[in-house]
Structures are given as structure tokens and as C-alpha cells.
């Protein structure tokens, strides 16, 4: 069967709508056809992009309350628990909720760090690590205008051991942001800047993590979330972070 005929099925394959038999057939074809695999990949990327962009609106609490009020009153439980049982249940629930939040927060944090480490490595491995090549912050910063939905400041590096190499667009969980490459000695450090999200939790205050092999520091300010990552000395990562912090608020 020609690729054009397979393409008929690839849309449904990406949507998970083929029969088990067809799924196997398409899977078999994909293993040997780079063109159809690229087509599938692009469709999946499009779906993901739509999914992220489409979850856009959240209802107000007032609307929720209005709707709940419109529902008939709930039947009272036949028997009230005694206060001891209620207290014990509440304590247990609080414990479970705390543990769940702690664990999900920690794993989410780990995923974010791992994703950023991947982005950093990919950039260093790339033949064109930066899209805007300049050591001048007044060239790099305006390049991002219109490409990302926020603005940021960059520090004056004169008199510091750091040099700016340039910048590029980066995406974290489908959200656009800036990636800046700094150099110190033979080490390259990536600085990622994204809009801060309330649902993305990090340990309070600045975080220095060695969990991802690289040294990393992160903080939030002015609704932006900064990540500084690289294989440079933790002291250098911290110095660059401090430089960025001092400029961010200015």
C-alpha cells in the first residue's frame, strides 16, 4: 500500500481510534517508513499543542457556588459521626493530603529539572546553539520582543567573569520562554526564563540542586521563574544568579 493510503489511517492512529488489527498494521508500516513516522509525529505534536492551548478558561468560584446552589439540597447522612471519629478522620486526611502534595510536588520538580537539563544538553550539542548571537545584552534582549509573552532584564557583565553568548527560544511544558547562554571559562551556563506558574511548585526560596548532575539554581520574581543550570562550579552558578536577581528588580 502506498504511503498516501496509510496517511488515511495515521490521523485515526494518532487519535487512538483504530481497531487493534489496524493499529498493528500501521505500527508495522511506521517502523519501516520515515515519512509516515514524521507525519505521525507532527500530528501528535499538533494535538498536544491544541490540548495545551485549549485548556484556557477557568470558571469563577461565584459561578460554581451559583450552580451548586441551584441543585436540590443534599440528604443528610443518616447517622452523625461522633466528634472523636471525625477528628481522627480529619487528621488522617490531612496527613494523606500533605504527603500527596509533597510527593507530587517533588516529582514534578524533578521532572522540570530533568526537562531543563535535557534542553541545556540539547543546546550545547546543537550546531547552532543560539538563534541570536551576540555578547551585547542590548541586542539579545530586544530579539525576544514579540516572541515571548513577557520582558526581562539582563545584567551588565563588565568586570565579571561571565560573557553572554546569545539566546534562543525555549519551551517548558509547551510554554514559551527565553534561554540565554553564558560562558565562564570553558563552561557554558543556560539561563531559562519562563512565566511563573502557581501550579508549578518548588522548594521555598532558592534551590540549589545536584540531582540532575548539573548545578542548578531557581527562583521566582516579578511573575517570572528563572532557572540557571550548567556544569560550572556551584559558586559560579550562584554568582550569575545573584547578578540576574540584582538586575531583574531594577
Amino acid at each position: 500500500m502506498a504511503c498516501a493510503a496509510w496517511r488515511n489511517k495515521i490521523g485515526a492512529y494518532a487519535d487512538g481510534e483504530l481497531s487493534a488489527e489496524d493499529m498493528l498494521d500501521v505500527g508495522e508500516h511506521l517502523r519501516g517508513c520515515a515519512s509516515c513516522t514524521a507525519d505521525l509525529l507532527s500530528r501528535v505534536q499538533m494535538k498536544r499543542s491544541i490540548q495545551t492551548a485549549g485548556k484556557r478558561f477557568s470558571p469563577s468560584l461565584a459561578l460554581r457556588q451559583r450552580i451548586e446552589k441551584g441543585l436540590p439540597p443534599q440528604k443528610k447522612p443518616a447517622r452523625l459521626w461522633n466528634w472523636m471519629a471525625t477528628l481522627a478522620a480529619t487528621c488522617a486526611l490531612l496527613l494523606i493530603v500533605s504527603l500527596t502534595f509533597y510527593r507530587s510536588g517533588a516529582s514534578q520538580q524533578g521532572r522540570t529539572f530533568a526537562e531543563l537539563a535535557d534542553l541545556h544538553v540539547t543546546t550545547l550539542a546543537s550546531a547552532t546553539p543560539v538563534d541570536v548571537v551576540s555578547t551585547d545584552r542590548h541586542t539579545v534582549k530586544p530579539w525576544f520582543q514579540g516572541k515571548i509573552p513577557f520582558a526581562f532584564n539582563l545584567p551588565e557583565l563588565g568586570g565579571t567573569p561571565f560573557t553572554l553568548e546569545g539566546g534562543r527560544m525555549a519551551y517548558l511544558e509547551q510554554a514559551p520562554g527565553a534561554q540565554l547562554i553564558f560562558k565562564i571559562g570553558n563552561h557554558r551556563i543556560s539561563v531559562f526564563i519562563f512565566q511563573d506558574r502557581r501550579d508549578r511548585r518548588f522548594a521555598p526560596g532558592d534551590t540549589l540542586s545536584r540531582n540532575v548532575t548539573f548545578n542548578m539554581e531557581t527562583w521566582a520574581g516579578d511573575n517570572l521563574r528563572y532557572f540557571v543550570i550548567g556544569d560550572a562550579d556551584p559558586g559560579d552558578i550562584h554568582k550569575l544568579s545573584e547578578l540576574l536577581k540584582s538586575t531583574a528588580g531594577s
Partner: peptide, 21 residues
């Protein structure tokens, strides 16, 4: 036919340059 949607512009390129907005 669903085949009519065959990408002329690869979405991978398209999406790399488009943002959520």
C-alpha cells in the same frame, strides 16, 4: 478523505515557531 490533510507544512516546524497564544 482524511488523506487530504497531509501536511504541506510540517507541524513540527510550524509549532516550533508558533506560541501558545
Amino acid at each position: 478523505s482524511a488523506a487530504a490533510v497531509t501536511a504541506e507544512t510540517p507541524e513540527s516546524l510550524l509549532l516550533a515557531h508558533s506560541n501558545q497564544k
